[in-house]
Simulated scan of single mutants.
Amino acid sequence: MTTDFPAPPPSVLITGATGFLGGYVVSEFLAHGYTVVAHGRNPEALQRLQELGATPVSGDLAQLGRLEHPVDLVVHAAALSNPWGKWEDFEESNVAGTGHVIDFVERNGVPRIVFVSSPSIYADKGDRLNIKESHPPRHKPLSSYIRSKIVAEALLLEAHKAGRVPELLTIRPRGLIGAGDTSVAPRLLQAYRKIGVPLFRGGENLVDLTAVENVALALRLAAAAPHANGQVYNITNGQPRPFAELLEILFKDLGLPPRYLKANATVLYGLGALLERLCHVLPGNPEPPLSRYMITTIAYSQTLDISRARTELGYEPTVDIEQALAAFAATYSVDHA
């Protein structure tokens, strides 16, 4: 007589689990029965994730590369994602860090990595709609962060071809927004406070955002997709909106009167390039108040084609942009604006 026992739930190690996206990813996988190992460096955030049911592992990615802890897959979401900084810092965090994740996968025989890259690799001047995953990155990336993501993707692809990473999937989620956002909306509100949000061509340029919950969903779908090995997927909400319309929604949710600065994209792009060169030589390399990448994201229409994710992963957004903006506003003090 034999007894059939249920198979244990699949296990996943999530890097960057204590970051904005990482916390949502942990919750998404836990909600769908995974055993989750949460890796990060923030003790308080790790404690909260442990209370949700995750197993916390504290440390940096270099320590992870030496860790023996077999799991069924890795979601690599850890990254230094500042829009400004020294190349050496991005190289250490995003390139060498990805190398340490590859070491962990090889050491523990992990069959699959799902890597969180960035559609910022497409960033350039000009309007472009429905950008596909095959679109080549700009020859000269607009920031060290973008360069590091391009190099990290290449490093993973090389490891995949060499057999060190048996299965590799990459997602490129654009403009994450939601409760706890530390980048997109807060930076717009910083500009709002100082000079008003720059508005180009009346704010008619289309902006493609993604509710953070939808990115977590896409990662779970990619983790379980049986025939997606080697693929890259753009992820957005599939709801491109005029920039001015999104700002109106955000200001209304925050109870703030609109405040804009009419601007010329060509002039400010040139000014951004000048300020970048200046800040590179100033002591401490301070972040410029304006950069070329910033202008490309708010002055031009740039939308992503997500048809591959829909077809191959079964991805359909579950949280719309209005809900994501409202969730941000509900957890962000107007005093900060």
Score class of each variant (00 low, 15 high):
Met1Gly: 13
Thr2Asn: 11
Phe5Thr: 13
Pro6Arg: 08
Pro10Cys: 01
Gly16Pro: 08
Ala17Ser: 14
Gly22Thr: 05
Gly22Ser: 03
Tyr24Glu: 09
Val25Ser: 01
Val25Asn: 02
Phe29Asp: 09
His39Leu: 02
Leu46Ile: 11
Leu49Asn: 13
Leu49Arg: 10
Glu51Asn: 14
Gly53Thr: 12
Thr55Cys: 04
Pro56His: 08
Ala62Arg: 14
Leu64Ile: 10
Leu67Ile: 01
Val71Lys: 03
Val75Phe: 01
Ala77Tyr: 11
Ala78Tyr: 09
Asn82Trp: 06
Asn82Ile: 00
Glu92Cys: 06
Ala96Gln: 14
Val105His: 02
Arg107Ile: 04
Val110Cys: 07
Val110Arg: 09
Val114Pro: 11
Ser118Leu: 04
Ile121Val: 15
Gly126His: 09
Asp127Pro: 06
Arg128Val: 13
Ser134Asp: 15
Ser134Phe: 04
Arg138Val: 03
His139Tyr: 03
Ile150Asn: 11
Ile150Leu: 12
Ala154Val: 00
Leu157Lys: 13
Lys161Gln: 15
Lys161His: 13
Val165Asn: 05
Pro166Asp: 02
Thr170Ala: 02
Gly175Ser: 08
Leu176Asn: 07
Asp181Ser: 06
Thr182Ile: 13
Ser183Ala: 14
Ala185Ser: 03
Arg187Pro: 00
Lys194His: 13
Pro198Cys: 11
Leu199Asp: 08
Asn205Arg: 00
Val215Glu: 10
Ala216His: 12
Ala222Pro: 07
Asn229Ser: 14
Gly230Asn: 04
Ala244Asn: 01
Phe251Val: 01
Pro258Gly: 09
Pro258Phe: 03
Tyr260Val: 01
Lys262Ile: 00
Asn264Leu: 06
Ala265Pro: 02
Tyr269Ala: 10
Leu271Met: 14
Glu276His: 06
Val281Asp: 02
Val281Phe: 12
Pro288Arg: 02
Pro289Met: 14
Ile295Glu: 12
Ile295Asp: 03
Ile295Arg: 03
Thr296Glu: 10
Ile298Leu: 14
Ile298Met: 15
Ile306Glu: 01
Thr311Ile: 00
Tyr315Pro: 10
Ala324Gly: 14
Ala324Glu: 09
Leu325Lys: 08
